[in-house]
Design a protein around this nucleic acid. Structure first.
Lengths: 420, 420
DNA sequence: TCTATTTGTTTATGCTATTGACAAAGTATT
DNA sequence: AATACTTTGTCAATAGCATAAACAAATAGA
C-alpha cells in the first residue's frame, strides 16, 4: 500500500491501485477557503473577484457564484472599477458590515449591559438594565425586557434570531448551563434552555473571560492575531484563551481559571481549598485590603484624601487613580500586584505561547500603569523564545467588552449560515 | 437579512431571499464525518456499512462507495456476516491495522530509537542506533543508516515515503527546524530541510513532549480521550498538550514549557533567567542533588547501599528504586518532588481543564509512587470542577514512546491521504 | 408460508466546482 | 490609430460526489 509520490499540478494520485483521486494540501486548503470567502472579504474590506480567486485558489467561475449570493443577501456591494494592471479593470466588491446585526448581553454587578453589533462587532446600539431581583428568574426577566426593546428596533435586520450571553461563574458551554456562580450565589441554572423556550431565540452562553477574549479577537486586537489570552481582573481573575482563532474550552468548559493558579505555595487560604491563589493576592478586594493595611502605616499618601479621609472606604479604583497621579504608595501597591500577576502571566506565556495578552475587566482595563509594570515583570520570568512572540496590552474595548464578545458568539455563526 | 428558522428535514433555508441552500449543523457534521469514516472504522474495529451510515449520517450508497475504496487499498476486509436484527444480516468490515506502516525516530541521550508502527501505532519493528559523533551531521547520518535498514525491510508496505522525528529542544514545527537544544548544544538546525533533500522522505519534526503526547493520544490513553497533557520528566520537564484531538502548538510552536513555570517566586536561579522554575526543583539532576544532600545528614537509608556506598554517585533512579522498596528517605524525597510537581500540575488542571494527565519520560514513567503522590497533591490544590474531570496516570508506553509518537506524525496524514 | 425488516447495490438526479471558450475593457507596442 | 497582449468576469459543458428511490437479497417472526 505504498502511496508513491506522483505529482501532477499539485495533486497526488494513488498510483499503485490507479485510484484517480486528488489528495494532499491544495484541495484541503480550497475546502477551508471556500467556507471562508466571507472572512477574506471582511479582512480585505475591498476586493475584486479575481483577487478572491487568487487568494482562495478557487476558480473565478466559482467565486462569481459565491459572490452573487453575497450580493443578493447584501453583505457585499459592487462599488465600481479598480485600477487596471494591464488588462480589464476589476469590479471592486466592498464588505457592508451594517448589512446585518447581532445581539449580545453581559451580566455584571446586577446589571445587564446589552448591545447590538454589526458584522464587524462594532456596537450600533447599547443599553444597560438593572436587575432588581437577584435571582435567575429576576435576571432572565430583565434580560427579556431588553431583548424586546432591541429586537423591535432592529426588526428584520438581525443576522439570526439569536442572542449571545456573557455570565458570571462556571458555564458549561455545550448545555448553556451556569454550573456555579459564587459572586451571585447561583448554581445549576440552565440559562440556554430557559431562554430558548421562552423567547425562541437560539442562545449561546459563555463566561465573562471567554466572551472578553472573543471580543478582543474580533474587534479589539490588531488584525491577523489568532492566538491570544484575555485576562479579566475584577472581583475574580480569569483568562479566556484563543488558539488558532478558536476558543480553548477544555473538557468541562472550565479552562482558563487563572485566579486559582498557585503563586505562593504556602500563601493565604482560598475558598477553593488551595493556598496562595492569585485571586487572594490580586483582585478588587485583595488590592483594597492591602492599601488599607499599608495606609495604616503611612498616612501621608494621596490615597487618604482620595478616599475622603476614610481609609476603610478605599477601593482598588482609588489606588489606580492615585497611581496615575504618581502617588508612591499606590505605585508600590501596583508593583506588588504586578509582581504576583507577572508570575501567573509568565506561566501563561511559557505554557500557551500566545501572540497577545490583553488585560481587561473592571480593574485590568483601568490602568496602563499596571499593564506596563506587568510587562516588565513578565520579561524577567518568561522564557526568551515564547517571550519574543508576545505583546502585553490593555484592553481598549471599555465596559461593553463583555456584551460585544457575547454578540460575537452569534457572529461566529455567520459564515456557517450564509454559505454551506 | 433576517435568516428565519425554517426547518425541513434538519436543514435551514434562507427564506426571505428564497435562496434554497442547506445550512446549519447536519451538513457540516456530514462534511466532517465523511473525512473521518476511516477513523470510525478504526475505533469500532468491526462494523457494517449500515452501521457506518447511521454513525456518519451519510447515505448507505455513499458509504458503499467509500468502503469500496478502502477494500481496494486493503485497509478493511470483509469478514462474513453478522447477526441479523430482523432483516438481512450485515456484512462485517474489519479494520486491518497491518495493511500499512509508518516510521518514527526519537533522539535521546545520543541514541536514535527508531520504530515502524502499524496504523494503530503498534510497534512492529524497533531498533536503537548509537550516535557516535555529537553533531547535527553525525546524528543525521546515523538516522539515515536506520532509515535504510527499516525501509528495506518494509519496502512497499509503507503508508507514505515519510518519517516522523522527535528531537530534543525547541522545535519550529512548521519549518522543522531545531531552534535550540541546550542538552546537546545545537542551534538552528533545519532537520526537515536536510532530511528531505538527502532522503526524499517527507519529514515531520516535533519535540519530545509533543510526540509523547501524540503517542498517548493514539495508543496509550484509553479510548475516546481528546484532551490530554503528557508530561515528560527527565533532564528537563516539558508538557505536550492535546486539545480536541490535536496538538496545541502556540504561535512559536513553543507551548508547553512546563519546566520553566515558577513554583517558588524567590527560589534558585535558573539558566532561563527566572527564579524557582520547576526544572530547578524536580528533574534528574535536582532530585539526585537533593538525595545526596539529605544522605549526608542521614546515612542509614537504603540509598547508601544502592549507590554502592558512594553517595556522590546517586542518581534519580536509585531514589526511585529505594522508594519502591519502601525506603523512608527516598519516599520523603519523592514527596517533596510531588509537592512541587503538584503545584505545576494543579495549575495545568485549572488552566487547560484536560481529561487526562500522563506522566512520562525517563523519570516520569519509572514510578507509580511518584504518580500517586502527585495525584494526591493535585487533589489539594486544583479547583473542584476541573479536578472532577481529570485522571492522572503513569505512561505505559515504555522507552519507545518518543519514537511511537514520532510515527504518529506520519499516521496523522493517513486519512488525508486515503480520502480527499 | 407470508409479511415485515434490514442490508447493500444500482440508477437517475441534483449540486458544486472546474475547465475552456469568449466577450469586455483596459495597457503596451508599433 | 491599429494591433497585440493582459486581465477580468461570465457562460456552457463537464466531472465528481452524495443523494433518493427502487430493488434485490437475506433474515426474523407470525
Amino acid at each position: 500500500m505504498l502511496l508513491t509520490k506522483y505529482y501532477n499540478a499539485d495533486t497526488l494520485y494513488l498510483k499503485e491501485y490507479n485510484v484517480k483521486q486528488r489528495i494532499g494540501q491544495p484541495e484541503i486548503l480550497k475546502e477551508i477557503n471556500r467556507t471562508h470567502v466571507l472572512d477574506i472579504i471582511k479582512r480585505e474590506r475591498v476586493v475584486s473577484r479575481a483577487q478572491l480567486a487568487r487568494i482562495t485558489s478557487l476558480s473565478r467561475a466559482t467565486i462569481s457564484l459565491l459572490v452573487d449570493k453575497l450580493l443578493t443577501i447584501g453583505v457585499v456591494e459592487e462599488i465600481g472599477r479598480g485600477e487596471s494592471s494591464g488588462g480589464r479593470p476589476p469590479v471592486l466588491l466592498k464588505f457592508i458590515p451594517d448589512s446585518a446585526f447581532a445581539m449580545g448581553a453581559h451580566m455584571y454587578d446586577s446589571d445587564w449591559s446589552m448591545v447590538v453589533t454589526n458584522l464587524d462587532a462594532v456596537v450600533r446600539r447599547s443599553i444597560t438594565l438593572h436587575i432588581e431581583q437577584n435571582s435567575p428568574r429576576g435576571a432572565i426577566d430583565t434580560l427579556k425586557r431588553g431583548i424586546e426593546i432591541l429586537t423591535s428596533e432592529f426588526s428584520g435586520k438581525m443576522l439570526l434570531p439569536a442572542i449571545g450571553l456573557g455570565t458570571p461563574g462556571l458555564v458549561d458551554i455545550h448545555t448553556g448551563t451556569i454550573k456555579s456562580a459564587v459572586d451571585v450565589g447561583w448554581a445549576e441554572v440552565p440559562v440556554k434552555k430557559i431562554l430558548e423556550e421562552e423567547t425562541g431565540l437560539k442562545t449561546f452562553v459563555a463566561n465573562r473571560s471567554k466572551v472578553g477574549a472573543l471580543a478582543e479577537l474580533w474587534y479589539g486586537a490588531r488584525e491577523g492575531i489568532k492566538d491570544l489570552i484575555y485576562i479579566s481582573i475584577g472581583t475574580g481573575i480569569a483568562a479566556g484563551i484563543i488558539h488558532q482563532g478558536k476558543l480553548y474550552i477544555g473538557t468541562n468548559s472550565s479552562a482558563g481559571e487563572l485566579g486559582h493558579v498557585t503563586i505562593i505555595p504556602d500563601g493565604p487560604l482560598c475558598p477553593c481549598g488551595n493556598r496562595g491563589c492569585l485571586q487572594q493576592l490580586v483582585s478588587e478586594q485583595a488590592i483594597a485590603t492591602r492599601a488599607r493595611q499599608l495606609l495604616r502605616e503611612n498616612s501621608r499618601s494621596r490615597l487618604h484624601k482620595l478616599a475622603g479621609n476614610h481609609p476603610e472606604m478605599i477601593t482598588v479604583y482609588h489606588v489606580l487613580k492615585a497611581a496615575d497621579e504618581g502617588d508612591e504608595l499606590a505605585l508600590s501597591i501596583l508593583d506588588e500586584s504586578a509582581e504576583y500577576l507577572g508570575i501567573a502571566v509568565a506561566n501563561l506565556v511559557n505554557l500557551f505561547n500566545p501572540e497577545l495578552i490583553v488585560l481587561g475587566g473592571p480593574v485590568g482595563q483601568s490602568s496602563r500603569i499596571l499593564t506596563d509594570k506587568l510587562a516588565e515583570k513578565v520579561r524577567l520570568r518568561a522564557m526568551a523564545y515564547p517571550l519574543s512572540a508576545v505583546q502585553i496590552v490593555t484592553s481598549s474595548l471599555g465596559s461593553y467588552s463583555g456584551a460585544i464578545g457575547a454578540s460575537v458568539l452569534v457572529l461566529q455563526q455567520a459564515n456557517r449560515l450564509i454559505f454551506q
